[in-house]
Design a protein around this nucleic acid. Sequence first.
DNA 1: ATGATTTGATTAAACGTTTTCCCAAATGGG
DNA 2: CCCATTTGGGAAAACGTTTAATCAAATCAT
Lengths: 342, 342
Amino acid sequence: MPVLIVEVAKQAQVSIATVSKVLNRAEGARVGVETRERVLRVAAEMGYQPNRMARSMVSGRSNTIGLMVSGLENPFFVALMEALERQVNLRGYGVMLDVAPSEKGTYYQHGMIRGWPVDGVVMWAFSNQLASSFLGPVADELPIVYVGYPREDGADWVAFEHYKAGRLAAGHLIDIGHERVTFVTPHIHDDGTVMDDRHRGCVDECRERGALCDLFAMPQHQATREAAFKTGRAIGALLSADRPRALVCHNDLLALGVMHGMRSAGVRVPDDVAVVGFDGIEEGQYQDISLTTVASPLEELASAAVTRLIEILTGSEGDPISQTIEPRLRIGLSTTGRTQEV
Amino acid sequence: MPVLIVEVAKQAQVSIATVSKVLNRAEGARVGVETRERVLRVAAEMGYQPNRMARSMVSGRSNTIGLMVSGLENPFFVALMEALERQVNLRGYGVMLDVAPSEKGTYYQHGMIRGWPVDGVVMWAFSNQLASSFLGPVADELPIVYVGYPREDGADWVAFEHYKAGRLAAGHLIDIGHERVTFVTPHIHDDGTVMDDRHRGCVDECRERGALCDLFAMPQHQATREAAFKTGRAIGALLSADRPRALVCHNDLLALGVMHGMRSAGVRVPDDVAVVGFDGIEEGQYQDISLTTVASPLEELASAAVTRLIEILTGSEGDPISQTIEPRLRIGLSTTGRTQEV
DNA sequence: ATGATTTGATTAAACGTTTTCCCAAATGGG
DNA sequence: CCCATTTGGGAAAACGTTTAATCAAATCAT
């Protein structure tokens, strides 16, 4: 039913080879200007769209990029995905989505990528080691640009400066007078993870400026809204004296959950407890008490990553990218506001 | 570099045709039990993965399904997407993601679907007419299951009962004593849209039970968090006498924005104004004032839609699906709670 | 034991492109 | 005017599978 190249060729009175050359504007292909125009016109008239599978077979390229993220519960990843998708489409590529089935599952076992026609992969790198084990053998067969966390194996990556972000968060709290900062986290930290970097930044900033930094581990050990909310309620139930006064939460999703949980338990934010998050998700801005956060500029990262990946794909090699992107403190009411008196 | 079928065939001492038959467990294919096992073993040993493009070329199928949604700002769509992706992967298919570039843009122009190797499409149907115009000619060439809104052209669809949801929302407010309900919406309503159905349900319920129902159009005419937040502030700025007492917002995203906007302007929820949304997004549950909502059971819809699509794809025809899914009222503090006294 | 059927496996023809190689015509230089 | 080069375009070989058409061997009924 779809129109084939052979029909276009017939209509334009040329061979299919010529049609192909015109449509792909190949480099070494020489074709007369008037035949070129004729072919172009006919192809447009007939609404010809090359069959991508056939094209892929012979060219070995699919013009499709795999997008691998670890889950969509956190709006930050959704925003990241949107940014990446935008960038990918902008360059004429398609997107193959792959959401890791579970925290434990690996993409490789998941089987989406193996044998699937993707030319390259943009992958969210949780941490230093994990990422490649998630990809399995594929990591060696396919061009990959890792985003989110830096790598040390010479692979391409674009990452946020999580350590610096940690310092910014703690620094802000110290600036406004806090002397004790509590870092809220769902997991025990591994070395070389986003969490660890943020935490270390927080700790170092506190130490240097004479503040205390302790750790509050969420009972459920899960990075979900629900767990965060319950954690907030638990914190709210603490005697006022035991209660931390300034919270740095591992990310905005958790910060919001914790904040709401505490408030639902009668804690005032920021009067009783100040809250800071990371990522800069939109949701945080449109709260009655807007969330102070250290934002990670997504578009920059997406653009750099995709640009590089396509560079690799089109053969214009160049050096591997290893780019860090500066986080930005965005002050909201959750640290500096005053609860509305009604 | 990847292992080819011909290598498997050589290793197993059979023809490639035999390997193919074994691996596809085709119906009419007869192959001896011991060769079958040998092939299976060898293929596994060598880690053979069929090249999906080659397979697609000849079979005409790609085992990939297009997922078309209108945007990812609303967490409801993200959740829908996740549910659909889960269902699709469960059945061994891949997912090609297509996010409409803008409200005005059409998928067809977007060009992702045309010529892309998808066997079928699951598409979020905004309304009755719009959906097919978004798809363009593709609508006739590809199996499509529409989700979200019912259709009247005999196409396959699985939809929520938005009208009934509207009645549930208004009904709940009337139950708890409200006599005037204000429907908050970003757009002027078209006939046969989700918005219109919800609104009509709301209006009818009010009329039947002797309550008043009026309309509040958001100044920005956009279904975004920001617009909703500003709308909330605007409502908060109204003199207490003019202020509506019970809001039904077109969806949870807006309800949350409006709620936070109002509260940031000093309005107490639900004491001063009660708020109801639609969809049942997770975010609404983990607020200090949890959001009352009419939830749409996603998994049910996703499962039904994907099941049907695969049914079409595998040729086991059966009748077009036209299934409605019952909404469920979930009562939160935004209508029945009392603001915490601190 | 013989012809008819079933079983097991092979050969070869697709699928719709891209791309390499090749050829004819046109152009250029001397 | 002849040879070398360039230019424009076509023929045909891939690409890695699936599947229809065959075919030989084995089984079966008579």
